[in-house]
Structures are given as structure tokens and as C-alpha cells.
Design a protein around this nucleic acid. Structure first.
Lengths: 161, 161
DNA sequence: ATAAAAAGTGAATAAATTTGCATCAAAAAT
DNA sequence: ATTTTTGATGCAAATTTATTCACTTTTTAT
């Protein structure tokens, strides 16, 4: 339990499955799960994940991940996000472009998952049958792009993390 | 004088129409609009409205109202120009590329319109389902590209001009 | 391989937000 | 017509969250 992406995924999971009211509480849960970090880092993580704090129903506050897209299939663990990672065959970079190779027929669905996650690092995708072109935001690093893909499809971590 | 309900409505309006990063900023705007209150009261108001604070796209934080799902503006009657421009959702640039986001299914038609106009600034387009990739001529400015799109679809002017 | 740049982090601190307590005003009750 | 209750609010303290600084590690460029 030591890399950042894994930590971010865990944070998202904890937040969606529990009612977390403060960073301090979240921090202690993370510690229990074996992550070693400080509140400062957690604050940065929440910022990166764009987690929001809002009032709960009747007194108290909770952290939430605002859904800004129309509900589709939930893609949390066991969902399509994981499954789809199986169709993912590789990624290569060139300048501000990345090319994702997929198994035949998977490109569109995987691209849709990426789009739905709307990662800051990727300003657009174009999918064919077994290839996706990612147009990257200027100035983002390859590592950041990969992290954003893993965030969209957790199981990708085993393949490229 | 201004009652609480009116204040809450104003707060919601300000938040949805601006990028408010702190209660202090919001407070000063409210003061400008004639509301007299303290930050403590504002905090309680935001709690009541269930306003959330989350990281902004770039840097910093903004207050949002979670059910901020942007319902697409209903299509207005008019000519075909309107029709096409309505499928246009936005454009972003990265290097010598531009990515146009469209409503699902619109990409090919809009790309065809662009191609038919054969703008000097755009040396080619590739369309998926809801995304168009524009490959730009070396040295052209983003403004020039936008202008060429408006030329192809006059009603776009209202959206991005 | 080495240098340079970027990303990640903790400790301490600053900034921002929430809340306990007291007060005041308006509504409800007696 | 008083008294009681309730809701709204300010003030200041408490709590929570964000950021600055310094440093280390990782990535990228030369």
C-alpha cells in the first residue's frame, strides 16, 4: 500500500461507501488500511479527486464526489470499469497525443468511460474499432495521463500502473 | 429589508453564476447587494442550501450546488444553421489540434459541414460520435480557427463568438 | 550518465469554516 | 398583555482545511 494512485482509489472508495465528515476521520481510516500520510497530503488528494464537502441531511457535513454526468451504469468495483480494462492492450505517447490500443470492438466503450470521467488531462478522445486517440491537455505529463486513466478504470493498474 | 429567504436565493444565484472561492468573497458580494450579515451566518446559510465546496478545474476552489447538472438548453426553432449549432457543445485546443465536443451523433454531420467549407485553417477533421478532431494548419491562431468555424456555421457565433 | 525539472510529501502555519454561547426579535401560548 | 418559545444572528473560540517552505524522490532532458 504505497503508491499514490492506489491511495486515491481507496479514498474515493471510502468516501462513497461511508459518511466521512472530516479529513481527520478519513485520515484515521486510511491509516487503518495501511496508508501513511498526513492531513496536508490528504487535503491535496481530495483536491485532486475533486471531492466536495457539503451539508449532510440534518446536521453534520460529509464528503461527496459530485456526479456531474447523467447516471449510467455504476462503474465502481466489479462494474464495467474493471471489466473494460481487460479490453485495454496498451498505450503509447507522441507529443500531445496518446494512442490506446484495445481489443477489437472495445475502443468506443472504453473511450466512453474515459469521457464520462472527464479527466482534466485529456481534452478529447476519438475512438475507432480497436484504437483510441487521446488528445492531451498542453503541459500534462504522461504519468498524469496514465494516472487519470487508472482512476477511470481501476483495474488498469495491473496493466500499466 | 431583506429577509432570509431572499438572501438564500441570492446566494444560490451568485454561486451558480460566478466562481466563488471563499465565504469571505461571497460575503463581500452580498454586502454589495445590500445584505448585511456576518461570515458565521453565511456559513449557516451555505449549510442550509447544501452548497458544496470543491476543487476547481484549474487551481483553487469553488462553491457549487450539487444538482448543478447542466440541462441542455431546448432547441429553438429556426433554420438548419440553428439546428447544427445546437449540436455543438464546445471546443478546446492543444498544440496544433482542436477537439470539438458535440451532442451524441452530431459529430459526423458537423464535421461534414466544416469539411464542405474547406477552411484554410483546418487541414483535416476526424469525427467520432460526439467528438471531432480538427488538425490545424501550422501557425494559425485559435481565434482564426474559431472564426472559420463560425463562418461555416453562422449560428455558432452565439455560442463561442 | 548526469543534470535539470517535476512531483510528492511532512511539519508548521495560515486561512477558512464551523460552532457554542448570548442576545434579540417575532410568533405562539397562556 | 405578559410570558414563553422559536428562529436568526453576532462574536469569539474551536475546529477544520489549505498552503508555504524545505526536502526527497522520480521523471525527463541533455
Amino acid at each position: 500500500m504505497k503508491n499514490k494512485v492506489q491511495r486515491l482509489l481507496t479514498i474515493r472508495k471510502i468516501i462513497t461507501e461511508n459518511n466521512i465528515g472530516s479529513q481527520e476521520l478519513l485520515l484515521s481510516i486510511l491509516k487503518d488500511e495501511g496508508f501513511d500520510l498526513t492531513q496536508a497530503t490528504l487535503s491535496r488528494d481530495l483536491k485532486e479527486l475533486r471531492v466536495a464537502k457539503m451539508a449532510d441531511r440534518e446536521n453534520g457535513y460529509i464528503y461527496t464526489i459530485p456526479e456531474k454526468t447523467v447516471p449510467m451504469e455504476p462503474m465502481q468495483r466489479g462494474g464495467r470499469g474493471n471489466f473494460l480494462a481487460d479490453g485495454f492492450n496498451g498505450i503509447q505517447f507522441s507529443g500531445n497525443l496518446a494512442v490506446v490500443k484495445t481489443q477489437p470492438g472495445y475502443a468506443n466503450t472504453i473511450a466512453a468511460i474515459i469521457d464520462r470521467n472527464n479527466p482534466f488531462e485529456i481534452i478529447g478522445t476519438i475512438a475507432g474499432d480497436d484504437t483510441i486517440l487521446l488528445i492531451l491537455r498542453e503541459g500534462v505529463s504522461r504519468r498524469e495521463v496514465i494516472n487519470s486513466l487508472v482512476l477511470a478504470m481501476p483495474n488498469l493498474k495491473e496493466k500499466i500502473g
